[in-house]
């Protein structure tokens, strides 16, 4: 009101008066409006969503797991990275395995003969010194047990890098002659080694025939029971994979029964000692019928009898010889 001049006298402008100069008025310090303690609707909904169990589980487990899997797969999708990763892993594993504490340097073998010792050293799958992680003792033991000469072996890795093998070898007690050669057998009939000829092991008793190795124990019992006949014995022959023939020198042959051959043999020995039967010209003693031993007399004795009877003599093949008179005339 006071700034505007209402009576328009000449010489006065109708302009408002300029604002009054003076000290600035003390102003109330502007209070910041207090923050509203209420959560906004968005924050409220977010908080409620966060309290939802499924959402929470998804966020805290699902998304991190997904991210980890995703980046891992992305990283692994490159061939070079995969190769370097696997190379690094195997390098680490080998660095640990090849530590000095795990190395096997020497192999000691106890209780083995020279060829078995050589074979065992050959069978070791790695060249010493090697890491003990590379030697599979179970596998090696089963491999060694496949050798016929070895009955049992005990493998152990001792401290200071020693692979100790304790070998129990099979002891040959029989020679077995069959169609493919001569083999040494132990008391169970298991093959020990081959021999080229009989004279290599003259001290071992000889058996022959197919399937003789399976009844090696019976053969040993027969040899043990043969007592006084032993010096004359050439060997035992398996007949028809069923029974034994005992072959003596001078071509004599004793046919033993399939059941209880030892008893039959003992009976024959008694008979021999009483009658001195085997010293006579008897080619075959047939003991297969236990109640009635049968003896076949030899060719010389037969011819004696035939000559006395005036019959034609028999040849070595069992046929009658032509009359000698015809020959003479």
């Amino acid at each position: 009101m006071q700034g505007i001049d209402h009576d328009r006298r000449p010489g006065f402008s109708p302009q408002p008066t300029p604002p009054r100069k003076g000290w600035p008025r003390p102003q109330q310090p502007a209070h910041k409006p207090k923050r509203d303690p209420a959560p906004s609707r968005f924050a409220y909904r977010l908080h409620r969503m966060w309290l939802t169990p499924y959402f929470r589980r998804l966020t805290r487990i699902g998304i991190p797991a997904f991210l980890i899997a995703f980046t891992t797969l992305l990283w692994l999708s490159d061939e070079d990275r995969r190769a370097s990763l696997s190379g690094g892993l195997t390098g680490m594993v080998e660095a640990v395995q090849n530590r000095d504490q795990f190395m096997v340097k020497v192999m000691t073998i106890d209780g083995a003969s020279a060829p078995v010792d050589k074979a065992l050293r050959m069978m070791l799958p790695v060249d010493l010194p090697a890491s003990s992680f590379d030697i599979n003792l179970d596998q090696l033991r089963s491999d060694i047990l496949m050798l016929d000469a070895v009955r049992d072996v005990e493998l152990r890795i001792k401290p200071d890098g020693v692979l100790a093998a304790k070998v129990v070898e099979r002891q040959p007690v029989l020679l077995w002659r069959h169609a493919r050669g001569i083999e040494q057998l132990d008391e169970t009939g298991h093959r020990v080694a081959s021999v080229t000829e009989r004279s290599v092991r003259p001290g071992l008793p000889l058996i022959a025939g197919e399937g003789a190795d399976k009844v090696a124990r019976e053969a040993i019992r027969i040899f043990a029971a043969s007592g006084p006949l032993l010096p004359r014995m050439r060997g035992l022959q398996r007949v028809g994979e069923r029974r034994w023939d005992m072959v003596l020198d001078r071509g004599q042959r004793i046919q033993l029964p399939a059941n209880s051959p030892v008893a039959a043999l003992e009976r024959l020995i008694v008979l021999d000692q009483a009658e001195d039967m085997l010293a006579r010209d008897i080619s075959v003693v047939d003991l297969r019928d236990g109640s009635r031993p049968v003896a076949r007399i030899g060719l010389g004795a037969q011819n004696e009898i035939r000559a006395a009877r005036g019959q034609p003599l028999l040849g070595a093949d069992g046929r009658e010889l032509p009359k000698q008179k015809d020959k003479k005339s």
Partner: peptide, 17 residues
């Protein structure tokens, strides 16, 4: 707003929605 404040604080304390 007042209800939201109270409910949110109680929910937070309870840990359930």
């Amino acid at each position: 707003r007042a209800i939201r404040t109270a409910v949110q604080a109680a929910q937070k304390l309870a840990g359930v929605r």
